[in-house]
């Protein structure tokens, strides 16, 4: 039963990812990304990372995918520029895909990974309390840095997306 659930979510994730890459329509690609993220959240639940599954759905599916959809609609480029990729692109991406996959597969085949420990989730871990304790003791400095990073990114986004100010001396019209 657990295998079936794993394969279902794995197929959802990989199929969504393929949909992102192969879809012509940008909106459909963003929705495929959403599908892939939901499959990944299911896999996180199978791995006993419940908090991360919830956060993935909130942050990625809720914010990132919605932001992508907003930008697609803002730029409004549906319909235009539907060209087929050139042979060079196709060949390069196929070779890159194959080489990356073969490399990881070879590593996995040679690696002596430990047999799956079929224990239950450790009682100490994977709970909200554990995360809180870790974040406020061991990882306190990274949390602070992330906070500053979020602030800086917010300022940067505001500055970047501001409309460029009109030139003081407008160029003479030809």
């Amino acid at each position: 039963m657990a295998e079936l659930i794993f394969y279902f979510f794995a197929a959802l994730t990989a199929g969504g990812a393929l949909g992102v890459v192969l879809n012509r329509n940008t909106v459909a690609a963003a929705l495929c990304l959403l599908l892939s993220l939901m499959g990944l959240a299911g896999l996180f639940v199978l791995l006993d990372a419940y908090l991360l599954a919830a956060l993935l759905l909130l942050v990625y599916a809720g914010a990132v995918a919605a932001l992508f959809l907003f930008v697609v609609m803002l730029l409004d480029m549906q319909g235009g520029a539907k060209r087929t990729p050139g042979w060079l692109n196709l060949g390069a991406s196929a070779i890159g895909f194959a080489v990356l996959l073969a490399g990881v597969a070879a590593t996995l085949a040679r690696a002596h990974l430990p047999e799956p420990v079929v224990t239950a989730a450790p009682s100490f871990g994977f709970s909200l309390k554990y995360y809180a304790a870790q974040l406020f003791t061991t990882y306190l400095l990274p949390v602070q840095i992330i906070g500053f990073l979020l602030l800086i990114a917010m300022l940067g986004v505001i500055v970047i997306s501001k409309k460029p100010r009109e030139e003081q001396t407008p160029p003479a019209s030809p």
């Binding site: 794995a10 994730t13 990812a17 890459v21 940008t26 520029a81 990729p85 692109n89 890159g96 895909f97």
Partner: peptide, 23 residues
């Protein structure tokens, strides 16, 4: 790990294949 590698490879192929900056 195999699924993770497959996802990474799909993403890598997409970066090489697609022309649209958003995708």
């Amino acid at each position: 790990l195999a699924l993770s590698a497959l996802l990474f490879a799909i993403g890598f192929g997409g970066v090489l294949l697609r022309k649209n900056t958003l995708v």
